[in-house]
Amino acid sequence: MMNNVFIQLFIEFFQIGLFAVGGGPATIPFLMDITTRHDWYTKLDVVNMLAVSESTPGPIGINMATYAGFKATGFLGGLAATLSLVLPSIIVIVIVARILESFSQNKYVRAAFAMIRPVVTGLIASAVLGIFETALFTAKDGSFQVPVFHLALVGVFFGLMNVKKLKKIHPFFWMVAGVVLGIVFRM
C-alpha cells in the first residue's frame, strides 16, 4: 500500500505544500531533496523544470509539481502531485480567512494591516528589482549587462500602459505584443 506511487506523491507534495513558506522558489530545496528518496526525476530535471516554469504560464510551484508528478508516472501523477501540493494551502487559508473575518472590524487588526500593506508594497518592489536583475541585467552567460535597448522598451511599454485610453487593456495583450516584438527584433 505504502509503495503505491500515488500515495508517495501525495505524502511528498502534501509536505511541500505544508512546509514551503515563501511560494514557488521555496519548493526548490524540497524538490531537490525528493531525488535522494525516489527516482521519479533527476536533479537536472529540476533545473529544466525551472526553465520551463519561467517560460510557461502558471505559478512556478504548480508547474514544478505537475512536471515532477508527470515524470514520475504520467498525467495522473502530475494531477496527484499538484492536488497534494495545494491541499494544505486550502485548509490553512480557510482557517486564517475565518479568523481574520471575525477580527476584521477590530481596530488593532486594522492598524496592523494599515502598516503591513505599505511593507508588502516595498517587498513587491524588491521582487520587481529581482525580476529586472534576472530578466534584463543578467546576460545569457550569467555575466552582468546593461541592455539599453531592452530598458528603453520597458520604458515605452510602461508609458503606453499609463496612457488613459490604454489602461483597460488586458495584460495578456501586452504579452502578445512582447512576443511579436521579441520575434521581430530577434531578441
Binding site: R117, T121, I124, V128, V154, M161, M175, G182, I183
Partner: peptide, 25 residues
C-alpha cells in the same frame, strides 16, 4: 525570441503594478 519579448512586458507590468499599489498603500 518570444520569451525575451515577454520578459520586457513582464518588467513593465510589474513596475506599473508597484506604482498603483504604492499609491493605494
Amino acid at each position: 525570441h518570444g520569451v525575451e519579448g515577454i520578459k520586457i512586458v513582464v518588467c513593465a507590468l510589474m513596475l506599473n503594478t508597484v506604482l498603483t499599489m504604492g499609491k493605494k498603500s
